[in-house]
Design a protein around this nucleic acid. Structure first.
Length: 320
DNA sequence: TCCTCTAGCACCTTTGAAGAGA
DNA sequence: ATCTCTTCAAAGGTGCTAGAGG
């Protein structure tokens, strides 16, 4: 499906991002209060519709340390990725998936370090209404969404209030939680209002938006778990080796002189026992857009029953 | 002085085009 | 002509650091 970005339709609701679908093309009226349209009502809980956080263990790992997400002007990807699997949808009905970051409370936070960690630091700044991120494959039949885990890997967060790329806009030093909305759409191309099928928040995805990492343990965990940060991991090792070499040389040469201290980092984060073994296997690969849903729809019809387990019930919005 | 934010850095992974070979 | 595999460069991702600004 080709999305036009800015100018894809004449409405004032589309972000205009490169790979961001036009809200009209998706057949939905997006619910963000950023747009001057009344939010459609959330329907009664849908029996049997379940959503599960795919990489929940990873999220919990970060949560136990205190998840922080870097926000930048141009937008930064979230890690861990927001990746979910859904079951219980009507395989033939069209749905759009959206994600938003909801403030968990009305406080601003401050990193105190050590045992104190993150502490409340006054009232929250006035927040812009939450912006929705629409999954690029929206809209698609329920069969498509249920066929495999859905990754929001392209989702980015920014602190720029003027952002036009469709990233989620957050305030740094504030706490957020992700919420998934499943929107039952009308036919693509139509501009009639659709309805929010159901919505749910995932407590494991609670995080604090920051412009640079505050918690050393957290940044260490990010480096260990994120394949893109492998360079940082190796770079640290290399730097350390170089430093040790250099120190050995200098010690022999400058025995009588005052020992030169290693450059003092703003936040000394490296320690040999913290390097850990890098995770070599790749994360769940759901990045490439899947366009074969039409063919699979027939298979889905007879397969794919509701997956049991500890899933969150989409019919029960758990707003803070 | 402290806190927050930004730009730039070095390094890595991912992606897609181009070419070779079966 | 088509398909598969390999190679390579560009794009884009990462955390770290210094320095600016409130």
């Amino acid at each position: 499906m080709a999305y036009g970005g800015s100018g894809c339709c004449s409405c004032s609701h589309c972000f205009g991002g490169e790979d961001h679908p036009c809200c009209h093309e998706a057949g939905i009226t997006v619910l963000s209060p950023l747009w001057p349209l009344p939010p459609p009502p959330i329907l009664e809980p849908q029996v049997g519709v379940l959503a599960r956080l795919e990489n929940r263990e990873l999220w919990e790992k970060f949560c136990s340390v205190g998840t922080e997400m870097i926000v930048t002007k141009s937008g930064r990807r979230m890690f861990p990725e927001f990746c979910i699997s859904i079951s219980g949808l009507d395989p033939f009905a069209l749905y759009a998936l959206t994600v938003e970051a909801l403030p968990t409370d009305s406080f601003r936070y401050r990193w105190r370090g050590g045992a104190e960690g993150w502490q409340q630091n006054g009232k929250a700044e006035t927040q812009l209404p939450a912006r929705l991120y629409l999954h690029p494959e929206s809209p698609a039949p329920g069969g498509h969404w249920m066929y495999r885990p859905i990754s929001f890997s392209k989702l980015k967060v920014t602190n720029s209030m003027l952002d036009q790329s469709g990233h989620l806009i957050l305030c740094s030093m504030h706490k957020y939680r992700l919420r998934l909305c499943i929107v039952l759409t009308v036919q693509p191309g139509s501009c009639t209002t659709s309805t929010t099928f159901s919505a749910t928040t995932f407590p494991e995805t609670t995080f604090i938006a920051v412009t640079s990492y505050q918690n050393e343990k957290l940044s260490q965990l990010k480096i260990e778990e994120n394949p893109f940060a492998k360079g940082i991991k190796d770079f640290r090792k290399q730097k350390r080796r170089e430093k040790m070499k250099k120190n050995d040389l200098e010690r022999s040469e400058l025995e009588d002189e005052e020992e030169e201290r290693p450059p003092e980092y703003k936040k000394p984060k490296y320690s040999p026992e913290n390097t850990g073994a890098g995770r070599e296997e790749m994360l769940l690969d759901t990045k490439s857009p899947d366009t074969g849903w039409e063919e699979r729809l027939h298979e889905t019809e007879k397969a794919e029953q509701v997956r049991g387990g500890e899933e969150n019930c989409l019919g029960v919005p758990s707003l803070p």
